[in-house]
Design a protein around this nucleic acid. Sequence first.
RNA 1: GCCGCUGUAGCUCAGCCCGGUAGAGCAGCGCUUUUGUAAAGCGCGGGUCGCAGGUUCAACUCCUGUCAGCGGCUCCA
Length: 755
Amino acid sequence: MPTITLPDGSKKSFDKPVSGKDVALSIGPGLAKAALGVKINGELKDLSTVIDHDVSLSIVTERDRQKVLDKDGLFLIRHSAAHVMAEAIQDVIGKDVQLAYGPPTDTGFFYDMYVPEGKKISSDHFEAINKRMAEIIKENREFTRYELPVGVAESMQAHKEDGMRKLFLEKNKYKIDNAMRALAAMAEKNPAAADRIAYKYQDPDGSYGEADYKTVQGAKLTFYANGAPGKNWEDLCRGPHVPSTGRIGAAIVTSLASSYWHGDENSDRLIRVYGTAFPTQAELDEYLKQKEEASKRDHRVIGKHLRLFHIDEDVGQGLILWTPRGSVVRKELQTFIAAELKKQGYTEVFTPHIGRLELYKTSGHFPYYKDSQFAPIVERQALAELSASGCTCAEMMNRVEGVSERLAKGINERTKAQTIAPDRIMADDKLVEGFMLKPMNCPHHAKIFGSSPHSYRDMPVRLAEFGTVYRWEQSGELNGLTRVRGFTQDDAHLFCTEEQIPAEIQGCLSLVKTIFNVLGMKDYRVRVGLRDPDSSKYTGSAESWDKAEAACLAAAESLGVAFSKEPGEAAFYGPKIDFVVKDVIGREWQLGTVQVDYQMGNRFDLSYIGPDNKAHRPVVIHRAPFGSMERFCGVLIEHFAGAFPTWLSPEQVRVLPISDKTLDYGRKVLSALQAVGVRATLDESNERIQAKVKVAADEKIPYMLIVGPRDAENNAVSVRVRGVEKDLGAMPLDAFVKAIAGEIETKSAVLSVKP
RNA sequence: GCCGCUGUAGCUCAGCCCGGUAGAGCAGCGCUUUUGUAAAGCGCGGGUCGCAGGUUCAACUCCUGUCAGCGGCUCCA
């Protein structure tokens, strides 16, 4: 006798078990027709799921009442499309392609598969695969779910109706592994009912299967057929799926990539086939158009086209050379951020790009993170002596990484733990001195803080630096401006008392808010990284952590944007807040972080004198809310598609004389603009005005001032604004100069100067 | 770091499969044109085909290695 509670709170009672489809029908035939699945107590299920007890339920359809695509609906469609694609691929490439894992993603789905030796799948096959997918969708075959028990017999030969037996017969080790994991997970969840199952299986052509694993009594495996079981293609799958292939709408395969089984590079290499699906062809087309749009915004392409930056092989991978135009963007942004920091009471510092190894041994960066740092720089003299003494490379690395007795003792005492392991301690005459390119600015800032005594009255001390750091990112990770090996952080360290943490975090967030607002990045969210309650890797007291986490959460909440709690994502030394922005076409970018650190004070023996006249440890807040200038500029290039607001544009105005005859007047206009600091140029080329306009438009110059004899006579300029494909008319030169200076001054996001 | 693909003029790309030492458009330079809002016309210059080996009478082309870029995987204090 199930009673079903619908999302609007209304209840429906039935006198016998009903399927999701029955419930939809009872609400209305239109809904039943549109239904793709159901959500039962928040869990997505097949529409055919039979309900025999009281639940809350919602019907999942393609889109909501506002005609917006529904997330759950898309999930069902794409998960189902992954099955259709897998069938199509096996039809096109061969039945011996072994499927591993095929989930939906944010933008589509993929299916990892093993393509046997000698066979190949390439983009040349896409057309055939797409065609086959379209056929399967058109056939509108029902997705049929069925379950098979496992462990019904010792010998798999004995019972046909055994899920594991079926998989063993298919000889697909990936699916067998998937099933084993699913079964083991059941045992984990319900240890009381856990049961051990052993199979022995004699294949007609020799022995094959043998399995011994844990699961629960009565465990079942779920399969889905693209049609009728035994007749059509089927797959081990947890589901859920749409009712039939026809409900997928439109699906295509989009790209190929390689992946590893379980993401482990020592494991089998698989081919990951990406695809996407939408309820209608029009939506799929729209998506493809958007993707094309996104690739047009690629900051690497725009950066080259607009000559913003250059990466040179001879300088090195991941090292950015900022050209004059790009430097303008970066500098304007930096000046803006610096001004906001000043308003918040930050003080600016400068520190060198390298520091002694001992500094990083103290901070803990070396050798702990040595794999992501540039190699240490060892002094020439020391190197020569080592080499002369026949020191091996391995021995040298040990001696470079070693720590003196004195340093180890201090750190271990202050951190009240064996932070420096005894095997790293080495006699002073064995240690090899050296330097390191700094991977972080904090050790230098800690030394500045420690260089003078501090009273609680001076706290917090806010040290800011646009500090350049170097990290050895893996070569495969490097990408344009967004992943580089040398970058400048908008870094600052806030040395504060424990009570000051909430206000300081609040300050960081309000800064971010201001800057995102000015840049028109209205859509962003924060992730609050909290400690994993089950882990012991964290330093600092539980009470401190509770307070700091509460401060982070309160600050995030006050920001007025979406935020999520991410347990286990905290750094070992304190909780953190990450910023994720969405650009104008909806892509998300991770920028910077704010992190609370209880450890650094101990490491560097920092202190301030409290009202009790005793020394106290300061807490340090690391904050680089925009990540790095490189990454942030990269994101902005894509956000604006190279069409920067006037205040950020490398070239704000271009003066275009109709012909040489008005060149002189053009020069006058140019000086008038430059006199008030506007970045303007004059196009002196011997081209027709059409060509000059085209070139300036391609270069995304915000304002074009066309000047001919008519304008010269009236001391006017004819204005053309980026994005408007026509002449807006003439206005007095003085008025234009005044207006654009105002637009730049206010950092307006829109181009508002017009006659 | 791993796997796959790519590397030809400043830029975008053709030529490579099937070896006979390179081609287009744009950009640049010169001349003509003096132009009113998204590319005027003509002419000229420019490349040891990423780099290093190998095969061959002969290599941009085939093979090996290497470097770099792209797509993904893994990673990101």
